[in-house]
Design a protein around this nucleic acid. Structure first.
Length: 324
DNA sequence: AAAGGCTCCAACCGCGTTGCG
DNA sequence: TCGCAACGCGGTTGGAGCCTT
C-alpha cells in the first residue's frame, strides 16, 4: 500500500522496500536483520510466545517511532509477526506503564462494580484501572469471579450472583481496604481512633450503594451500614462512577447520621449507617457480626433469596479465597 | 518421584467498526 | 457509495507452572 511506503520513508529515512510480508526487511539493528533474514528464508509469520529478541526489537522500534500502524510497524521493525500480534504484545506486556502483579482489593472492588454496570466491556473497565489491560481484567474475571459463581451453582451474570457480589463480596473487600487504610494512616491520624467506618455525609445522587459493616464499636454488635461509591469523590474510583453511567438498582431513601467515609489511596469510599436497606426494591439484611467465618457462612447469614446454602462446603469459600 | 489435574495468563482468532482511496 | 485494509474488542485456546495424589 502506498500509504505504508510513505510511512516507511518517513520513519526509516530510506526508500520503501518491497512489501511482501516475508521479505520486507527495513531493519535498524543486527538482531532485526537476523530475524528478517530468517523470515525471508522461512517465508512465514511467526506465532506463539515472544522471544526476548523480538521484545527488544519491538520496544526499540516503538521508542524511536511511536506506536500505531501495526502492520507496517511489524515489517519496519523486522518482526515476523502480524500487526495484531505486535499490538497485543505491546499493549498487554511491553508498554512501560503496564502494571504487573496481583489485582489489589481496590482494583477488585472497582472491577466488580464496573462489571455490574457495563458487563463484559473489558476495555472500558480497564481504562478505569491505570496500568491494567483489558486482557488482565478479563482473565481476572474468568479465573476468579467465574470460579466463585460456579461454586455457588449460579450463572455469573445472574441476579443472584450479582446480589452476592454486592451484599457480601464488595462489602468484604471494602472492609479490607478500609482496614489497610486505617492501619497505614493510623500514625497520621494519631489520637483519632478512627473506626473502620465513620463520619457523616449525605447520600449523593447516582451513587453505587451496598451494605457493609461498622466494626467501630468494638465489643458491641456490628452495625449494618449502606455503602456508597460516590461520583463526587476523587481519583480512580470517582472517575469510574459518573452519575450518568450509574445504573445500579440500589436505593437508600433515607440515610442515617452514622455514615462513613474511608479514603484509600485517594479513592474515597463512603458508608452510611442505617437500619435497613433496599437493593432493587427488595430488603436484604446481613445480620450481626457476619464478617467472620467462611464465605458460605456469610452467605447463609445473608437474606438473599433462593440460595442453596446447604450445598456449599465451607472450605471452598474461605474469605481469604476472594482476595488475590 | 512421577503422573495427572488444575490454574493462570499470554497469545490467537473472529468479527464489528473505522478510515481512506 | 463501495471496497479494502487496518484497527480494536471480546471470546477462546494452549501451555507452563503449580498442586495433589
Amino acid at each position: 500500500m502506498d500509504m505504508d511506503k510513505e510511512y516507511y520513508k518517513a520513519c526509516m529515512g530510506m526508500e520503501a522496500l518491497p512489501m511482501s510480508p516475508a521479505g520486507f526487511s527495513a531493519v535498524t539493528t543486527e538482531a532485526a536483520m537476523a530475524v528478517a533474514t530468517a523470515s525471508e528464508d522461512e517465508g512465514d509469520l511467526k506465532r506463539g510466545p515472544w522471544t526476548a529478541e523480538e521484545d527488544m526489537l519491538l520496544v526499540d522500534y516503538i521508542s524511536k517511532h511511536g506506536e500505531g500502524r501495526w502492520n507496517s510497524l511489524a515489517r519496519c521493525a523486522g518482526l515476523r509477526r502480524t500487526g495484531k500480534s505486535c499490538r497485543l504484545r505491546w499493549l498487554n506486556y511491553l508498554r512501560p506503564d503496564v502494571r504487573r502483579g496481583n489485582i489489589t482489593p481496590e482494583e477488585q472492588l472497582l472491577i466488580l462494580d464496573l462489571h455490574s454496570r457495563w458487563g463484559n466491556r473489558w476495555s472500558k473497565i480497564a481504562q478505569r484501572l491505570p496500568g491494567r489491560t483489558d486482557n488482565e481484567v478479563k482473565n481476572y474475571w474468568r479465573t476468579r469471579v467465574q470460579k466463585h459463581a460456579k461454586q455457588l451453582h449460579c450463572d455469573v451474570n445472574s441476579d443472584r450472583f450479582r446480589d452476592v457480589v454486592r451484599q457480601v463480596w464488595m462489602p468484604r473487600l471494602l472492609e479490607r481496604i478500609q482496614a489497610e487504610s486505617s492501619s497505614s494512616s493510623a500514625a497520621a491520624a494519631a489520637g483519632v481512633g478512627v473506626p473502620a467506618l465513620t463520619r457523616a455525609m449525605s447520600s449523593p445522587a447516582g451513587a453505587s450503594q451496598y451494605h457493609c459493616f461498622d466494626h467501630a464499636s468494638s465489643g458491641g454488635p456490628s452495625r449494618k451500614v449502606a455503602v456508597t461509591m460516590s461520583p463526587d469523590t476523587s481519583s480512580t474510583l470517582r472517575s469510574s462512577l459518573s452519575p450518568a453511567e450509574t445504573s445500579h438498582g440500589a436505593h437508600f431513601p433515607a440515610w442515617g447520621a452514622a455514615t462513613a467515609t474511608a479514603n484509600v489511596d485517594g479513592s474515597m469510599m463512603q458508608c452510611a449507617g442505617r437500619e435497613g436497606g433496599a437493593i432493587g426494591g427488595d430488603q436484604y439484611v446481613i445480620h450481626g457480626d457476619s464478617l467472620s467465618g467462611s464465605w458460605s457462612e456469610l452467605l447463609a447469614a445473608t437474606d438473599i433469596p433462593d440460595f442453596e446454602f446447604g450445598n456449599f462446603d465451607d472450605n471452598l469459600w474461605s474469605l481469604e479465597d476472594i482476595y488475590c
